[in-house]
Design a protein around this nucleic acid. Structure first.
Lengths: 229, 229
DNA sequence: TGATCTATCTCGATA
DNA sequence: TATCGAGGTAGATCA
């Protein structure tokens, strides 16, 4: 296997005493200390201290290129951001071929909530009917457009966590939809797994209804429904 | 050194073929593959594939506890979130004592922008004067309150990147401030290093002025000023 | 402890 | 390519 292939195909783990400077969207400096330097197969570089699971102390996202010279590593990307690592002492240096990761399978995000609620629109009220999901408007799609038991139009904004900007977003949709004589009057429902107090106050103040969604209950209803067939 | 001290004091790097399941705020599953498992001194655990510098495939933030049993690692936190790692084959396993990191020194964030602009408020217009930074209101502090050359009150909202929710925020401040007869009429300025088109459209539509800040120029002015003394 | 806000946010979808 | 929105956002700050 060529050197190039090796450089592109492995994860390299270096434990070293180093200083690091980042110059890009901001300037940042790390004083000398022992850290983990991780170079991945895609060329990305990250520097970890011995705490925090998620965020590296410093990093450079791919695509970027690494030049190694006399214990000074220079990582640059297309935008001209620069990460300079000065290695003072290397404690450990190993490389490992991992191959391509099959990737993550997720469940329980907003898109799924939208599907579930659209399929079970009567959760919002008996006799309610779905007009459509992702109802298009000039300023973006409304999550769900439906009609209540009286045939009045209702716009539903769905969030996993309901905060103030979600209410603002729905307010803009309602303003726009209410200009359409075929739809008006349109009222709003703000639906989320969790609604922050400030968001609830603002929504209520604007005549927007709030609904807290129970993901497991919605899914349970779905499962029950599936069992019937 | 006791076993407990070792477990608490080192970073452990394991390269292993594993499957991972996370159950918590959502459910997620990683099929079998070779990955890096990193256990840090604070007890946090992260799982990395051989790409992307910043974000792990899966993780558990501290504080959390790890139980190791028959190749099954179970990481739980106080909220009841769970990360289950099933190790099938271990390729590498090393531990390294790093010590406490001295931490990152940063420059160029929003707080600094606010200081700079407050110190150089005439950047917004000749004859403008600062009333105060972090002007308190019932719904939170206004970044900068100042007066233009005619003595009219101006509220300034500062962001590094100006997006639509920043305009909404300033709008709420203006609505409130304009109820105060000692201040009214108050107009708004939306100031940011970069203003997104949608934010600019919304601001303009609401009679809010937009100013793009040049961080280096602001700092340069400061530096020049400092040189005079 | 809870609420709010920033971030070198990252990352993906989309126009 | 630029923009927009979601995220197991995480992490910090302040009440």
């Amino acid at each position: 296997m060529s050197v190039e292939a090796v450089r592109l195909g492995v994860m390299r783990l270096v434990i070293a005493r180093c200083t690091v400077d980042y110059a890009g969207r901001l300037s940042a400096h790390l004083p000398s200390a022992l850290r983990l330097i991780m170079v991945k197969a895609d060329g990305s570089v990250s520097i970890h201290a011995d705490d925090r699971a998620y965020k590296p102390l410093n990093w450079m996202s791919p695509p970027c290129s690494l030049k190694e010279e006399d214990g000074t590593w220079t990582v640059v990307n297309k935008a001209g951001e620069k990460l300079i690592i000065s290695i003072e002492e290397t404690i450990h240096d190993s490389s490992h071929e991992l191959g391509v990761d099959p990737g993550l399978v997720k469940d329980g995000v907003e898109a799924h909530l939208q599907e579930l609620l659209a399929d079970r629109i009567t959760t919002l009220g008996a006799g309610w009917t779905l007009v459509r999901r992702e109802y298009p408007t000039a300023i973006g799609p409304v999550d769900i457009l439906c009609r209540d038991s009286d045939g009045a139009t209702v716009a539903v904004e769905i969030k996993r966590r309901g905060e103030i900007d979600g209410v603002e977003q729905l307010t803009r949709y309602l303003e726009l939809l209410n200009r359409d004589p075929l739809l008006a009057p349109v009222r709003g429902i703000f639906a989320a797994q969790e609604i922050k107090p400030q968001a609830k106050v603002l929504a209520t103040d604007r005549g927007i209804g709030c609904v807290v969604l129970d993901y497991d209950a919605l899914r349970g209803v779905e499962d029950d429904k599936l069992k019937l067939f």
